[in-house]
């Protein structure tokens, strides 16, 4: 090959020394961390999130799920005490243990629903943005059609329609209400349009960028261009949207569970623990205070983290 054997009579160009580099050698992740670190609230958010995850996982080691679902109407509606720190609910279950297991389910719903949402959003947005033309027109009109129908309405109808048709499941030795799967599916299936539009917009800009043109000129395959060039460069809005999506999914679950159409007992979630609590708003504050507080904390901290990530991953904000 010609390049491999440069002609001897031409002296090689003098290499530039390291100190002539314009910017300090920082990897992209280091730069993102430096920028993220500036957001005090985002750091607090990360802290709260870690504590919550520890609460839900380590708590499971202290109390068994059986204990969380054990009811004894004899001790119903007891206020917080040393035996039941968060009190007991209407049929005498320990609220502390239930917030622990409910938290697991709520987080699970949030994470899996977001995975589903993100996958759908990326595929639809990417295909639409990259290929354009008629495919784009059809997909985007479909996306808009989904956006027009209010999500809550769609959720309620689908929850009503599918609930009860799915039997209980046993995963890893634990029994889950089949409604968990239904809730995950419907949250995932109704939340993707926003992300799809974001991804489409990113793809539309990036597919015309010079580094993508360079890849095409090299002969890179469409698959490579989409998944190795464009997608990694649109990761910032996707990550931010997915982060906020977790909070959104947890809130949605709480919402439909509160209305009694969500996850069915005995499986606890923070949402269905609120179901019926409104009857006791003034009489038994502990029924709604603890699950409500946990939902508030997790949603707030996720939003703070999302804001931090938005800034940290934005290549346009260059200052460290």
């Amino acid at each position: 090959m010609t390049v491999a054997n440069p002609l001897p009579n031409i002296q090689p160009l003098k290499p530039l020394s390291l100190d002539e580099l314009e910017a300090p050698p920082l990897t992209l992740s280091k730069m993102a961390w430096l920028k993220f670190r500036r957001h005090k609230m985002a750091l607090v958010g990360v802290g709260i999130l870690v504590l919550m995850i520890l609460y839900c996982t380590l708590g499971g080691l202290v109390f068994s799920e059986k204990f969380a679902n054990y009811n004894d109407t004899g001790i119903a509606l007891q206020p917080p005490s040393s035996v039941h720190p968060f009190g007991t609910d209407v049929i005498g279950r320990d609220i502390l243990a239930r917030t622990i297991y409910g938290g697991q389910i709520s987080l699970l719903i949030g994470l899996i629903a977001v995975m589903l949402e993100t996958t759908l959003g990326i595929i639809i947005g990417a295909v639409s943005g990259y290929f354009g033309g008629l495919v784009d027109s059809l997909l985007m009109r479909f996306t808009e059609a989904i956006l027009i129908v209010p999500q809550i309405f769609l959720l309620l109808v689908m929850a009503k329609f599918f609930a009860g048709n799915i039997p209980n499941l046993t995963i890893l030795g634990r029994e889950f209400s089949g409604s968990v799967v239904v809730i995950i599916a419907i949250i995932g299936l109704t939340s993707w349009p926003y992300l799809a539009r974001i991804v489409r917009a990113e793809f539309l800009t990036l597919k015309e960028s010079e580094f993508v043109l360079a890849a095409r000129a090299t002969g890179s395959s469409t698959f490579d261009i989409i998944f190795r060039h464009i997608l990694p460069n649109s990761i910032a809005p996707i990550v931010v949207s997915a982060t906020l999506g977790v909070a959104n999914a947890i809130t949605l679950e709480a919402y439909i569970s509160f209305l009694g159409l969500g996850v069915r007992p005995p499986t606890a979630t923070w949402g269905n623990m609120l179901e019926g609590a409104y009857n006791y708003i003034d009489k038994a504050y502990w029924l709604w205070l603890f699950p409500g507080l946990l939902i508030l904390l997790i949603v707030l901290s996720i939003n703070f983290v999302g804001d931090g990530l938005r800034d940290a991953l934005d290549p346009r904000s260059r200052t460290i």
């Binding site: 010079e210 002969g219 890179s220 990694p232 990761i235 290549p315």
Partner: peptide, 29 residues
Amino acid sequence: AQIIFQDPYASLNPRWTISAIIGEPLRVH
């Protein structure tokens, strides 16, 4: 047949290392 672009900031994938960028044609072909 290859191409060199005008904008040295837009024509390199910001998420790839130099090795991956220059190695891309080698890999593809």
